[in-house]
Nucleic acid binder design. Structure first.
Lengths: 137, 137
DNA sequence: CCACAGGGTGACGCATAGGTCAACTTGTTT
DNA sequence: AAACAAGTTGACCTATGCGTCACCCTGTGG
């Protein structure tokens, strides 16, 4: 009872266009099976696509995301493979740690701006929003 | 004694090309002064450029980075301005928090892969690297 | 005076990440 | 049979983010 999906179903479920999904396949990020000519996706494909989308949210290119996905697929039983894997994984980890530093710093600065704006409004009698819920929706 | 820089100096200092810097100016991310026709950058320009580069490392487009920079420039003395600023800053903060969740999750997964690779190597007698220092440099 | 370095402005080129047709096949419905 | 929905491929289009000329100006040293 492995559930299967069509491109359209999967696209809608993940909030992307079918075109994008097909494009990712062309780029080698996913390899859905086929029923005749029709693409058939299972849960593993869906999981991979989720990883792709997360990679995109983190700002990586499709090529980088592909390398990232390859890390999961690498054969760990071959010493040479495992060694390369280890090196690459560590490189990736360091990149992401740099990104996290950037992120934290940016967040800190934005929170400072937020407080300043709140303070400015308070001084002028405009009641400041206490909740973090979007005030501009 | 405000030190000034040329495009080339600044480019080299920040590890980008002069072309990129000029491009950022065209896109409105920076507004260096001019001595005649020659661009002249001061420390504020340099600071802005650093913010631009950090934004890029976080995967934002130049347009997004521009909006981000505008947050710092917004006039906080006008209630309407401060209100909009607050809304936008909060939106940005939420985006970045999402990004951080993605980042942490990805890091956790990569660390798991790292441990697996280490374990596989240990089992095969290959001495695993204990340090996190680059093994592949 | 002449060369040369350093800076400037176009203008074109290129890769990435898809959007947007167009034209066809296939399965289903009526 | 005819129409329709859902797929497919292929070709072309578009916006970003620069790289790469080509060509021009200008100040300085020899």
């Amino acid at each position: 009872m492995t559930e299967l999906f069509s491109v359209n179903q999967l696209a809608e479920a993940l909030g992307v266009t079918p075109r994008a999904i097909r494009f990712y396949e062309v780029k080698g990020l996913i390899q859905p099976r086929r029923a005749g000519t029709t693409r058939v996706f299972d849960r593993r494909d869906r999981a991979r696509l989720l990883l792709v989308l997360r990679g995109k949210r983190l700002g990586f290119s499709l090529a980088e995301i592909r390398e990232f996905l390859d890390l999961y697929d690498t054969d760990r039983t071959q010493v040479s493979q495992a060694t390369m894997l280890l090196g690459r994984v560590r490189t990736r980890i360091e990149e992401l740690e740099q990104q996290r530093r950037d992120l934290d710093q940016t967040l800190a600065e934005l929170r400072a701006v937020e407080r300043e704006a709140q303070g400015a409004l308070r001084q002028r009698g405009a009641l400041p929003e206490t909740t973090t819920k979007n005030a501009a929706d």
